[in-house]
Simulated assay, not measured.
Amino acid sequence: MSAFTVAARTTVAARATVASSANRRSVRAAAEPEQKSSGGEVFFTDKNGDGQRATPEEYEAAKAAGNTYQASTVTGDLPEWAAGATADSDISLSLGDAFAFAQVPAATNFVASGPELMNGRLAMIGFVAALGCEIATGETVGQQVAQSPVGVAVVTMLIVGGTLISYCSNTKPPAAGPFNQQKELLNGRAAMVGMASLLAFEAVKGVALF
Results as ranks from 00 to 15, higher is better:
186 L>P: 03
154 V>S: 01
171 T>M: 11
117 L>T: 09
174 P>G: 03
118 M>I: 14
154 V>E: 01
201 F>R: 12
189 R>S: 12
112 A>L: 03
164 L>R: 04
143 Q>R: 01
164 L>H: 02
198 L>F: 07
109 N>V: 11
139 E>C: 04
124 M>L: 14
158 L>N: 15
193 V>H: 09
116 E>A: 06
108 T>R: 01
182 Q>L: 10
163 T>V: 10
148 S>C: 01
191 A>L: 08
119 N>P: 01
157 M>A: 13
179 F>I: 11
170 N>C: 01
129 A>I: 11
158 L>D: 10
138 G>A: 07
156 T>H: 04
127 F>R: 15
157 M>H: 06
145 V>F: 08
150 V>E: 14
141 V>Y: 10
111 V>W: 03
197 S>V: 15
160 V>N: 08
159 I>H: 03
134 E>L: 00
106 A>M: 03
138 G>V: 12
198 L>R: 11
164 L>C: 02
153 A>S: 06
137 T>N: 05
198 L>Y: 09
112 A>C: 02
201 F>W: 12
191 A>C: 07
156 T>M: 03
183 K>Q: 10
106 A>R: 06
149 P>Y: 02
181 Q>A: 02
112 A>S: 08
126 G>S: 11
147 Q>I: 14
126 G>T: 12
187 N>G: 08
163 T>A: 11
124 M>K: 14
139 E>R: 15
131 L>Q: 09
203 A>N: 13
190 A>H: 07
144 Q>S: 09
202 E>A: 05
157 M>V: 09
166 S>F: 08
126 G>W: 07
185 L>D: 15
186 L>A: 15
112 A>G: 00
200 A>C: 01
139 E>D: 07
126 G>K: 03
200 A>H: 02
133 C>W: 10
108 T>L: 01
165 I>G: 04
188 G>L: 05
191 A>W: 06
134 E>S: 08
189 R>I: 15
141 V>H: 05
150 V>H: 14
120 G>R: 05
200 A>I: 07
150 V>W: 12
191 A>S: 09
128 V>K: 12
161 G>M: 05
171 T>V: 15
122 L>T: 12
194 G>S: 13
170 N>A: 00
188 G>C: 06
193 V>M: 13
107 A>R: 11
117 L>Q: 05
161 G>P: 07
193 V>N: 11
152 V>I: 09
115 P>D: 04
177 G>D: 12
183 K>S: 12
180 N>E: 11
127 F>T: 13
172 K>P: 00
107 A>S: 10
115 P>F: 01
164 L>F: 04
106 A>N: 04
184 E>H: 15
148 S>F: 00
141 V>F: 14
169 S>F: 04
122 L>R: 09
119 N>E: 01
106 A>V: 09
156 T>C: 01
130 A>D: 13
109 N>L: 06
174 P>L: 02
189 R>E: 13
134 E>Q: 12
112 A>V: 04
150 V>Y: 12
202 E>N: 06
177 G>W: 10
187 N>D: 14
183 K>M: 14
194 G>P: 12
161 G>S: 08
145 V>W: 04
159 I>E: 04
149 P>W: 04
178 P>R: 06
176 A>Q: 02
117 L>D: 00
167 Y>W: 07
162 G>S: 07
181 Q>H: 00
143 Q>W: 00
162 G>Q: 08
131 L>Y: 15
172 K>T: 03
140 T>H: 01
188 G>Q: 05
